[in-house]
Simulated scan of single mutants.
Amino acid sequence: MTGPGLTLAGIALVLVILWANLRPWWKSDRDPAKLKSFGTGSLLGALSTMCGGGLLGYIAGCAAGAANTGGGKAVAGATGQQAGAPVTTGDLGSLTPEGAVVVFLLTCGTIFAFRAAGRDERKRMVGGVFCGVCLCLTAGVANALSWLPGLINGAGAQLITAVQGVGLL
Rank of each mutant, 00 (worst) to 15 (best):
M1F: 11
T2M: 10
T2N: 13
L6Q: 04
L6C: 06
T7D: 14
L8S: 11
A9F: 06
G10S: 12
G10W: 09
G10D: 11
I11C: 09
I11P: 00
A12E: 08
V14K: 01
V14T: 15
V14I: 11
L15G: 02
I17K: 07
W19C: 10
A20C: 09
N21T: 08
L22V: 15
P24V: 06
S28G: 14
S28Q: 11
D29P: 04
R30D: 14
K34W: 03
L35P: 04
L35F: 05
K36S: 14
S37Q: 05
G39L: 09
T40E: 11
T40M: 15
G41K: 02
G45K: 00
A46Q: 11
L47V: 04
S48N: 01
S48V: 01
S48D: 01
T49V: 13
G52P: 00
G54Y: 01
L55F: 11
G57I: 10
G57Y: 12
G57W: 10
Y58D: 14
Y58N: 12
Y58F: 15
A60W: 03
G61P: 03
G61Q: 03
A63W: 00
A64H: 01
G65I: 01
A66P: 01
A67M: 08
G70E: 06
G70T: 08
A74V: 14
G77P: 05
A78L: 14
A78N: 04
G80Y: 07
Q81M: 12
Q82R: 05
A83D: 11
A83S: 13
G84V: 03
G84K: 00
G84F: 02
P86T: 14
P86L: 11
V87R: 01
G90N: 02
G90L: 01
L92N: 02
G93S: 05
S94Y: 04
T96K: 05
P97F: 12
A100S: 15
V101G: 07
V101M: 15
V101S: 12
F104V: 13
L106K: 08
L106D: 07
C108K: 07
G109N: 08
G109T: 00
T110Y: 09
T110E: 09
F112D: 12
F114G: 02
R115I: 10
A117E: 10
R119T: 09
E121D: 14
E121V: 06
E121N: 12
R122D: 12
R122H: 09
R124G: 13
R124L: 12
R124S: 15
R124A: 15
M125W: 07
V126E: 12
F130C: 06
C131K: 02
C131D: 09
V133R: 03
C134Q: 03
L135N: 08
C136G: 06
L137S: 03
A139W: 13
A142R: 02
A144M: 05
A144G: 04
A144P: 02
A144N: 06
A144W: 04
S146M: 08
L148C: 03
L148Y: 02
G150K: 02
N153D: 14
G154W: 00
A155E: 07
G156D: 04
A157V: 00
A157Q: 14
L159M: 15
L159T: 10
I160P: 09
V163K: 05
V166W: 13
G167L: 07
G167I: 08
L168E: 14
